[in-house]
Amino acid sequence: MEVPFRATYFDGKSARACPVEVLYDGRRLRVKGEGVALELYLEECRIAPPLGRTRRVVVLPGGGRLETDDQEAIRRLEKETGQNLGQRLVDALERRWPWVLALLVVLLLFGWAFLRWGLPAAARQAALLTPMGVVESISEQALRLLDDQFLAPSQLGPGQRQELEALFREVVVWMGGGYPYRLEFRASPQLGPNALALPSGVVVLTDELVALAKDHRELEGVLAHEVAHVLHRHSLRQLYQGAGLYVVIALALGDVASATSLAASLPLLLLQSGYSRAYELEADATAGAYLMRRHGTTAPLQTILLRLEASSGKVALPGYLSTHPSTPERVERLRRLEQGRP
Rank of each mutant, 00 (worst) to 15 (best):
L89M: 11
F150Y: 15
P98M: 05
R335K: 14
R124H: 15
R217D: 11
L305V: 09
L85V: 15
L23W: 01
D70L: 07
F185W: 03
L321C: 13
V248W: 08
I138M: 13
Y240R: 12
L145C: 04
P50N: 12
Y41W: 15
E184A: 11
V134S: 07
L60Y: 02
L51K: 11
G177E: 07
A48S: 13
V222D: 03
A142Q: 01
T54S: 12
P4F: 09
R341T: 00
A73S: 14
R341E: 12
L38T: 03
H216W: 09
P19L: 06
R330Y: 08
C18F: 00
S265D: 12
E208K: 03
V59E: 14
G63S: 01
G296N: 09
R330V: 04
P189F: 02
V230N: 10
I249K: 00
R88I: 00
S137H: 09
R336C: 04
E94H: 01
V227Y: 04
D255H: 14
L236D: 02
E43N: 05
R336K: 13
S326D: 11
V36D: 06
E67I: 05
L269I: 11
S273P: 00
L205A: 11
E338F: 01
P50G: 09
K214Y: 08
G178Q: 11
Q149N: 06
R76I: 03
G242D: 08
R233K: 14
H216Q: 15
P131I: 12
S137P: 00
